[in-house]
Design a protein around this nucleic acid. Structure first.
Lengths: 129, 129
DNA sequence: CGAAACATACGAAACTCTTCGTTGACATCC
DNA sequence: GGATGTCAACGAAGAGTTTCGTATGTTTCG
């Protein structure tokens, strides 16, 4: 009731979510250290973003310890699909198929990757039938 | 030299670009009428956005007539690929293959669409070989 | 001609995003 | 116990986005 669907994460938020998905539940310090390997953002910037993300419902905060522990509220795949559905809607006239075909065309794929995709197609076709 | 790569269009900008791709070169009035079928945005809102998009280099403006005619500077497919590459980078660890597979999994596809994708795969595999 | 319609330009308001400095609370350790 | 380090909270600045009102200049036509 009180939860509407999650908002689209912004760029900075997505970077943080990436760390949370990779590391699992983490403190601000954890995330900050991870993100500062490349690029540099201040500690309080990460903190602020995580606070906002908590308000938005993108992450869940465990406050039992002094250093709060943050965790992504939605799984990586679910978020990725959300983003893809969103992009399909905004830029592909709502057609996920167009999106897939454009993504396939616009790049050089190696044989192994193409095979993996083909296998996935087989699986999907089996289900449809 | 003076042109760097185009900026990622925002949501409202993408909606306008969609109209320009569909209709071809259009005046502010054209775009406004098209976008006001659903939702409502004022005329000057569209005008302002198109002015900003001109500054950004997303569209090109022909000022020879009194009602300026705007045209998307980059093709639909090019922009779509740009957006996909961008999303792959931000949310899929840079892997377009992961993006494709997630896009395929996260939806119900009909047989015709799957076949179209399969044919595209065949073509791509032929080129790689 | 003069009124109405139509066009661009400008500026500003409301909102979001990203950043970080400062403050105050709590902990640790000489 | 007092200095030093770690932490969350807060506020605010600066940029970008989206919205639109108002001003101003053209065109049209009765």
């Amino acid at each position: 009731m009180s939860d509407r669907q999650p908002p689209r994460p912004t760029d900075a938020e997505l970077a943080i979510l990436g760390v949370l998905w990779e590391r699992g539940p983490s403190t601000v310090r954890d995330v900050h250290e991870q993100l500062n390997r490349d690029g540099s953002t201040g500690y309080t910037t990460i903190l602020k973003l995580l606070q906002i993300m908590t308000e938005k419902g993108l992450v869940v905060r465990d406050e039992t310890e002094r250093a709060h522990v943050y965790q992504s509220r939605y799984g990586e795949q679910k978020t990725q699909r959300q983003l893809l559905a969103d992009l399909a809607e905004r830029a592909f006239g709502g057609s996920a198929t167009k999106l897939v075909m454009q993504a396939l065309s616009g790049r050089k794929a190696n044989a192994a990757e193409l095979n993996a995709i083909r296998e996935l197609l087989d699986t999907l076709e089996g289900e449809t039938r």
